[in-house]
Design a protein around this nucleic acid. Structure first.
Lengths: 228, 228
DNA sequence: ATTTTGGTTTTGACTAACCAAAATTTAATG
DNA sequence: CATTAAATTTTGGTTAGTCAAAACCAAAAT
């Protein structure tokens, strides 16, 4: 039997939750519940059921993480979500700050047929509008390595690859200051005490943002503009 | 509170069910239940609830029909459904025989924003791929009058306007023999006893179909090819 | 070693939507 | 007019998903 959309949402939330914490670490039930907007007890009940089905590895009082089967399922949900987001931006002309919520609903009802057609129309893309990687139809994530503005080298040019927060307000801020994926910039300095990071864009303009924001912007070393 | 997708499906089924029976007539619960694929008792319970909410006019043992409020809601569901079908055919290149089921799911989750955008991309169309009229955003149906191959004049050219059966097999048959909306043809004769209707296409080819099929093809008098 | 605290699990209860089968009403037929 | 068939409604029960609040556990603080 195919998973209900509730199950899909749990798997997705567990994936996203565990992915941003030390490797192999389980996701505390409270975090999961908060991410899904349910009370903790509800999450516990549901996760126990998921464990029964072999989709997650659950240890009471210690948290939950995906099994191999659960990971594949989560990847397929993410695949649908991200292809839909890209489709809405590229084909339908919506803003990248308004497609997340829309995709949240559509991801549970689109047939494989339709997803495949979108994939084709988009030219089999690797990443969505926020730079998030799009798993393939087998549920495998493309390889990707990058750091954030908090951890990358200072004084060397980097290219934004990904924004790891879908909140509309944050996305509009990112867009306004030219921090979207593909844009090039450089970390000038980090000020621990001020909790801030100073950046300079390619056109030389300066910008200082908080560390909270900085850690949501992923980058990779710019290709040495190897044309010489 | 917005209606659940179950409520939307009931309203849609009641609209479609009542529309193909004598005017003002109520739809028997058994028919409704069959259309929705539930047992009669389930339909009764749900319809009573809908009557409570003022969306339908229900008379025990006599059937159900939409109230004004229910009709508007049903029209909006149909609007979404039909715009989606047209979008899938025109923009995404799916076959007209495979879009119905897809739209059945999508109609419940697309935002007004997205529906409006599709409407715009499609040039504010009046009918969907099957010729079914698309209500406007206020829930009003466009005017339309037509007859079927069972009732139209014989010996005069008519244009197909609409196919009133979404079943994939039937749609493929219609496509194969060129009976899709826009095509011109003529009823040569009706044979009561044989339960059949003979047609001739513009290219002169003959075709005989059963009355069941004939009544699912709506037509209107062809414009006298007024070019003189 | 005990208390506090914060997170977690359990319990009991609720809602929407459904089915199966019994009870009822209407309509049809002898 | 009585009977029976067909359709409809009722009744009782199920499942998925949820919440509120009570009970519980573990780790830190006393």
């Amino acid at each position: 039997m195919l998973p209900s959309s509730t199950v899909e949402n749990y798997l997705k939330a567990i994936y996203l939750g565990t992915s941003q914490r030390p490797d192999g670490d389980r996701l505390p039930m409270g975090h999961l519940a908060a991410a899904l907007g349910v009370v903790p007890g509800t999450a516990t009940t549901m996760v126990k059921a998921l464990a029964e089905s072999g989709l997650v590895d659950y240890e009471p009082y210690n948290g939950v993480r995906l099994s191999a089967a659960g990971l594949t399922l989560a990847a397929l949900v993410l695949r649908r979500h991200r292809l839909i987001e890209l489709f809405l931006v590229r084909v339908m002309g919506l803003g990248w700050d308004e497609v997340h919520d829309e995709a949240e609903h559509l991801e549970h009802v689109m047939s494989d047929r339709l997803i495949a057609r979108m994939d084709e129309m988009l030219g089999f893309p690797q990443v969505d509008p926020h730079g998030d990687p799009i798993p393939n139809a087998a549920g495998e994530f493309p390889a990707h390595e990058s750091t954030t503005l908090m951890t990358c080298d200072t004084g060397t040019p980097v290219t934004v690859t990904r924004i790891t927060d879908q909140e509309a307000g944050f996305l509009r801020f990112v867009q306004q200051y030219g921090l979207m994926p593909g844009h090039e910039l450089e970390v000038v300095a980090r000020d621990e005490a001020a909790d801030a990071v100073s950046l300079s864009g390619p056109d030389g303009q300066r910008l200082t943002i908080g560390t909270r924001a900085a850690s949501k912007v992923r980058v990779s070393a710019s290709q040495a503009s190897s044309r010489a």
